[in-house]
Design a protein around this nucleic acid. Structure first.
Lengths: 223, 223
DNA sequence: GTCTATAATAGGATAGAC
DNA sequence: GTCTATCCTATTATAGAC
């Protein structure tokens, strides 16, 4: 049950590939069709337009996100929940990095997608808040309750625009998986000053873990 | 010496206005010409193309930034330097918010502008590092030297994409000056956990200052 | 489901008169 | 310096045959 993709799915997959490789803006419906060796008319049989494709891709992204993030409140340690969360978010960020590379632009062109995105982000914020609260209650983070929500927003901003930041900093080199993982280190730096003495070794440990991932020459995952 | 703008300058000013109001992507050279009551041909007499206009705008932005930031190392207190810096950066961010609203997109379309931007950002980073070092030496921030450069990047990312974040969060409402100033509060939150006991009241003070600015209903500055 | 052919725009840009 | 008229091109999208 590996192959046998219907044309519709092939269009979605090819779009993700091309968008990631050349930027969403630079890839037209004709390019996608040509890349697949099908006619533009055929593409338009399956999708109303490019936005329609983008909406399908976003749906797929959301499904993956939901399925990979561990349900909160199970027996695991609070810091493990954080690590799981960072893993999932940054891996998906890499697989769909075209989306993060031009987020405001993409959303500005499709109100319906923007609304959907916004709704999802509301859930994301709550998830982050939950994780922070757990870390606070576990004595890992010494973070004033009053600052918690604002701090969650800061994390979210940092994560969301990490790819964009990378792109603005380096006109020449294209981003790779390793550079994306450096974003995790930036997030951990945000946590560091709030870490209790007790938790500092564990944070350090996490830091070293992601340091290694970030240093590896990127070897494309088997996506 | 107020009026008497040459057509070239009028084009630049009108472009900034329209870009801010409707987004850079949505405004074409024809729109700009129509808005000014001149012909497209006339516009193209003064500028090669839209990118040329954007480059001129960026130059103006840089000039303003340079002229408004106080030279470092003068007699003022370290925290005053920070406040001055935040004031200047966020006010200019408001006046040119179209640029920040779609930064990766704008830069991706013009390599030469991107190179220029990158060079300026190099200086910006150094400026931020200098301010942080001063704050450290003044005993205001208890920030490990080893983390300083990375922390500077985090600040820069937060500032650069604050507008983008606002736009992604709210599809409906357009951003105003007050919401832009809320970004300063986010930056201060970054500093807070590093603040020495000694400096906490001053940070608090700054926080309250910008809180007020952020709460005001935006009254367009006399730009 | 898929193709070929083609229409409809819109946006960027220039030539040549004034 | 400015205008009018126009052209070129890329992109989107559809009609109708197979």
């Amino acid at each position: 049950m590996e192959k046998k993709l219907r044309t519709k799915d092939k269009i979605v997959q090819a779009s993700i590939e091309l968008f990631n490789a050349q930027g969403e803006r630079a890839v037209t419906t004709n390019h996608i069709a040509a890349h697949l060796g099908i006619s533009p008319g055929n593409l338009y049989y399956h999708f109303r337009n490019k936005e329609d494709i983008l909406r399908h891709i976003f749906k797929e992204y959301c499904k993956l996100l939901d399925s990979r993030i561990q349900p909160p409140g199970d027996r695991s340690e609070a810091l493990d929940a954080l690590a799981n969360y960072l893993d999932v978010v940054f891996e998906l960020m890499w697989r769909f990095h075209f989306f993060y590379a031009n987020l405001p632009d993409i959303l500005a062109r499709d109100l319906s997608l923007h609304k959907e995105y916004q709704a999802v982000q509301e859930q994301v914020l709550q998830r982050v808040v939950k994780i922070l609260q757990a870390l606070r209650q576990a004595g890992v983070l010494e973070l004033p309750e009053a600052d918690l929500a604002e701090f969650a927003h800061t994390i979210k901003l940092l994560v969301t625009f990490w790819i964009s930041y990378l792109k603005t900093q380096a006109p020449d080199k294209s981003i790779d998986q390793a550079s994306v993982y450096q974003g995790v280190l930036k997030v951990l730096l945000l946590f560091k000053p709030y870490a209790s003495k007790l938790a500092q070794p564990r944070i350090q440990q996490l830091q070293e873990h992601y340091q290694q991932l970030a240093e590896q020459t990127a070897t494309p995952a088997l996506v």
